[in-house]
């Protein structure tokens, strides 16, 4: 707990002093443009309507709300991954990974500290996206508070769990740019952020189910678009938490090997 708190405080200070504006704009941009494109095409192409089958496969006929919630969740995912999964490779680039190895601190609390700071920052950034969507004329229904809180917890666990194996991949490959962007594209396609994952070919839908973000998305949608009570989303919630914890456990198991490899190879840009 001490480690987590110390990491949180350090990262908070670093972020406050040198806020990474280019990352912020780089993640806010796609989110806003996704909403704007959805808005324009809904009006001009769909004529203000959506196909009849959309309601059946997505559970709602509110296309704009559907895409906005998805774009916001995708922005949250990319932001969290950029912080949490890149935490260790950033330490290595800055030359502090070795010091981290020498301290008696455990990895899980360290990563939790990074994630907690990232969570607060990402929520603030999300408000920018949702505020812009609101200004553009997207209206979202009032969510059910309990299941909404549960959905946010689910999203946190899902993204946190996913980030740990990614961190291991990044430090053992000594490369972040290709890994992170490929992950964003794959997650954006498979997890049903801006369209129902059921539209994909069956094997891809199955692959999507293996990622915790898919179940988290279902919980989030049920909570925000239908104001579903917590009993209705328990199943997806449990799947998401179980998958998130599984990914985190696998990540923590392989992380020591990845660290050994990263240290033996030495720092690379």
């Amino acid at each position: 707990m001490v480690t987590a708190w110390a990491t949180l405080k350090r990262n908070w200070l670093v972020t406050r002093r040198a806020y990474p504006w280019s990352y912020f704009i780089g993640t806010l941009g796609p989110g806003i443009f996704t909403v704007v494109v959805a808005l324009l095409s809904y009006r001009a192409i769909g004529g203000g309507r959506v196909s009849a089958w959309f309601g059946a496969s997505s559970g709602t006929s509110d296309y704009l709300g559907y895409v906005t919630v998805g774009a916001a969740a995708l922005m949250f995912t990319t932001r969290m991954v950029l912080w949490v999964a890149k935490a260790q490779i950033t330490e290595q680039r800055e030359g502090t990974l070795e010091s981290q190895m020498l301290t008696p601190a455990m990895r899980l609390p360290y990563l939790l500290g990074v994630a907690a700071q990232a969570f607060i920052t990402s929520i603030l950034e999300l408000c920018c996206l949702l505020g812009t969507a609101l200004l553009l004329g997207v209206r979202l229904p009032v969510p059910d508070p309990v299941s909404f809180a549960a959905a946010i917890l689910a999203a946190f666990v899902a993204v946190f769990g996913l980030s740990i194996p990614i961190s291991a991949i990044m430090i053992s490959a000594g490369e972040a740019h290709i890994t992170q962007n490929t992950l964003f594209c794959v997650v954006g396609l498979l997890c049903g952020f801006t369209f129902p994952a059921a539209l994909l070919p069956a094997p891809l839908t199955f692959l999507g189910e293996l990622l915790p973000a898919t179940a988290a998305m279902r919980v989030l949608r049920a909570a925000t678009l239908h104001a579903a009570p917590i009993q209705q989303v328990t199943g997806d919630l449990l799947i998401c938490l179980a998958l998130g914890c599984l990914y985190a456990a696998v990540g923590l198991l392989v992380l020591p090997h990845a660290e050994r490899r990263a240290i033996t190879r030495g720092a690379s840009a």
């Binding site: 095409s41 192409i45 959506v50 196909s51 959309f54 296309y63 396609l189 801006t194």
Partner: peptide, 13 residues
């Protein structure tokens, strides 16, 4: 991603 996001708008009257 773009294609699937636009797909629900196609079969509209």
């Amino acid at each position: 991603i773009t294609y699937y996001t636009m797909l629900p708008l196609l079969e509209t009257p």
